[in-house]
Design a protein around this nucleic acid. Structure first.
Lengths: 146, 146
DNA sequence: TTTAGTGCAAAAGTTTTGCATGGTC
DNA sequence: GACCATGCAAAACTTTTGCACTAAA
């Protein structure tokens, strides 16, 4: 299972003109094993698995991945950036505040509303970000039971 | 004008059980004079005006203000936090990418849409953030003229 | 062999904290 | 006078950068 994924990642990197090194594939594998993670967390995660990768390399790899649109960046906390492996296209996220599970929402249906809104104030629409947090069914059940 | 505002701010601080010191009022005045600013920018702004306030005090004051809901925090850039003086209640912002002017949008009309969306995935809605960027009419005119 | 990537360590940047001093109630 | 707040400096923290070394094309 891990083998096939690593091949995918190698191909993904090669497609973008990046050499599929052991370190870069490791970062992608680590990122895929979590909903999201900071550079520090990925570095620690790899170290725990006995994979030795320099912290600077993790940062450089994540910067590359973000630049190529392979990962999204989020800034929830102060002074640290969270990275998330994402699908293609414009979409938003629904995050569970209990278990931090992330649901990718399909198409963005906000454009008409946003177009009206911006036009009302004489603006032309450029971009928007939406983050929705809630409690998933599993976490609701736990909360009710407890 | 500045006098009346400072009185307002002093009252605002007192309401929340904070001593209305010169430094705290200065931070609020500086924040009000801009659409948004980082702690570093506020510190520099005050220094330029000859108001001597320690950087740590600016950070401490902004942390208090954020905790009491008097200012909103935004994290656009890496490693620095932006603070913005806001009105009451739940609302969103429309930011001009040209002049950084901020329009506060009134009521949030997203709740029905969000309720459907979260229910669809078995979530209960807790919170959401929306940031819209565009180009305001003035900046559109400049762009067209240039 | 030529180029790109890595690791290490130092640097840069923002933010936090400890403690003595000063201001406010 | 008691307590809160400030200022300064040092520390903590994440992230970036320089450079010699290693691995890949």
């Amino acid at each position: 299972m891990a083998g096939t994924r690593q091949l995918d990642y190698a191909g993904l990197l090669a497609e973008h003109g990046l050499r599929p090194t052991r370190q870069r594939v490791s970062v992608l594998v680590a990122l895929a094993s979590r909903d999201d993670a900071t550079a520090q967390q990925i570095h620690a995660l790899l170290a725990d698995d006995g994979v030795r990768v320099g912290l600077a390399t993790v940062y450089r790899t994540l910067a590359w991945l973000a630049e190529h649109g392979i990962v999204d960046t989020l800034m929830h906390h102060r002074g640290e950036v969270c990275y998330r492996l994402c699908g293609e296209g414009h979409h938003h996220h629904l995050v569970c505040s209990g278990c931090h599970r992330v649901v990718e929402l399909g198409d963005c249906e906000l454009d008409p509303w946003l177009a009206d809104l911006t036009a009302e104030h004489g603006f032309t629409l450029e971009a928007h970000t939406v983050e929705v947090t809630g409690l998933c069914s599993a976490c609701q059940a736990v909360g009710t039971a407890a």
